[in-house]
Amino acid sequence: MAQKSLKTLAARNARTLNRTHLISLAIHLTYLLTRTFLFPRKPLPYALCSFPALGIEYWFERIGRPTHTESGEVKRAGEDLEAKGLTEWMWDVLYWTWGVVVLVVVLGDWCWWGWGVVPVYSAFAAWRTYSGVRGGMGGLMGAGGEGGGSGGGQQQQSKRQAKMEKRGGQPQQKVVR
């Protein structure tokens, strides 16, 4: 059964990479032909905005392209190109770059400013992640006395703990198995 999942992943990765390369080729070729024959466009913004996307595409090719043995068996299926996290973010950058290039072809050079959304969104996502981690560790920092807990270093009780102490009983500890 494991070989079947490898074959499925390898086929899906190969289809995804082939489709990605064809779309990228069509978009960039359209831009270059439009720039050459119809409207003069600035080459520097194109280079600055397209090279990260082309680098991402190259990276996907390196990690995702399946390799086969001489007999046709899957030797390595490649990494999952539908993975969450960084891979998903890289796809977003690639799609956004394609959209900006198409807008530049249709509307003009001022659309290169649309690519500035990528670093702004990245900074926002990094801040949100940092804030979530910091918020999640708030209780740990307060318990150690280092994180600026309130009440002169005492731990703050939950409502349940306060009720149990008020009744005179100790709350039972949960056993983690």
Rank of each mutant, 00 (worst) to 15 (best):
H21Q: 12
L86K: 10
Y31W: 14
T20L: 11
T8V: 09
R134A: 12
E88W: 06
G147T: 07
L38D: 06
F37T: 08
A11Q: 05
V93M: 15
R134H: 03
C111D: 03
R128N: 07
W127T: 02
H28M: 09
S122V: 10
S50W: 05
Q157M: 15
L103G: 12
G138E: 13
K84D: 14
L25E: 10
G152Q: 00
W96H: 11
K75W: 09
A10V: 05
T16Y: 04
V93R: 01
A77I: 01
V74H: 05
R12H: 02
V176N: 05
N13M: 04
F60Q: 02
N18V: 11
A14F: 12
L33E: 10
Q157T: 13
A53I: 05
S24W: 11
V118R: 05
L9Q: 13
P171G: 08
R128G: 02
S122E: 10
W96E: 00
T69M: 03
I23V: 14
K163A: 13
N18I: 07
Q157R: 09
S5F: 06
R76F: 06
S50G: 14
V120H: 01
F124G: 02
V104T: 07
M90H: 00
G108D: 07
D92H: 13
W98P: 04
V175H: 06
